[in-house]
Design a protein around this nucleic acid. Structure first.
Lengths: 152, 152
DNA sequence: CGCCAACAGTTGAGAGTTCAACAAGGTAGC
DNA sequence: GCTACCTTGTTGAACTCTCAACTGTTGGCG
């Protein structure tokens, strides 16, 4: 057991600015969505994934994977979205354990209403704040992090 | 009111990979700290900031700014940390509204015990997963996001 | 077939965060 | 000194997330 490899000053700076920027950014987006569309960002993402799926439907476990969410978290979230009338749960024909989440028409309306303000915020805080080159760099960096962190 | 400027495919890719990587990374770090040190990452950061301050003490509002946290969140968090015996609250001599949070010896011990595992995780998932060049790029990108998002 | 481990999803309790409301102390203008 | 306003910090309720425990289902294997 050799000693801990502490971060160098430059690594510190990178890490701390990354933490700080993420916190600021996601807090801002959450506040914007909560205020204007009555949903947190995590719920917005669920609606997005469903809207992109065939039949606007996905099995719970598939939806959990795509949103990088635990089963439990998704289960609670979908229950909430169901109360709003934005998502409906259906039985799975081929696997009686399965549940299918489907985006309702009202859910699609809510998503369409929320999208412009959200995209605008993403532009303001991220996309338009970076050069095209930086945006490419961010993509590469993010994909490397995913690679290194993804549960294998 | 002109129409929404939707994200181009490349911008989409950047944004989605950024969201995905942040989620994976912070989830992993939170789990690691919770498991090994019985505290979430936000609490670890509070202890870090206090440990770096003069007298290991900071006023609540100053601590809130440095951790990019709301007053309310910090107030709840410090109450919890106080229960653990890691932080103590003291009166402020010059402003009777003020409260000063001080890192206790036990708090410093807890921080020292938590640090190696945490730094190791940060290396595994971020620092060592990127080239030195990418790390610099990440710093620049993060600072640009902070600039664009920071409440003015 | 019968057994049993793995899988799909839910649930409830506990913990953290947010928001709005609040109390109390400071500050500036008159 | 009074008034009005701003700042500091806390509180409680509502909400989200995590973790562990649980139900029911499927699939593999003897």
């Amino acid at each position: 057991m050799t000693g801990t490899r502490w971060l160098t000053p430059e690594e510190q700076r990178a890490w701390r600015s990354y933490v700080e920027s993420s916190k600021l950014l996601f807090d801002a987006l959450d506040r914007q969505l909560q205020r204007d569309a009555d949903m947190p960002h995590a719920y917005y993402e669920i609606l997005v994934r469903l809207s992109e799926a065939d039949q606007r439907s996905l099995r719970m476990s598939e939806l959990a994977q795509r949103t990088r969410s635990s089963r439990s978290r998704l289960s609670h979230a979908v229950a909430r979205l169901e109360e709003h009338g934005w998502v409906a749960r259906e039985e799975c024909a081929t696997d009686r354990r399965g549940q299918i989440a489907r985006l309702t028409d009202a859910g699609l309306d809510a998503l369409r209403a929320a999208a412009p303000g959200h995209v605008d915020a993403v532009r303001r805080h991220l996309v338009d704040a970076l050069t095209p080159e930086q945006l490419q760099q961010l993509t590469a960096v993010s994909e490397a992090i995913i690679q290194a962190t993804e549960p294998s």
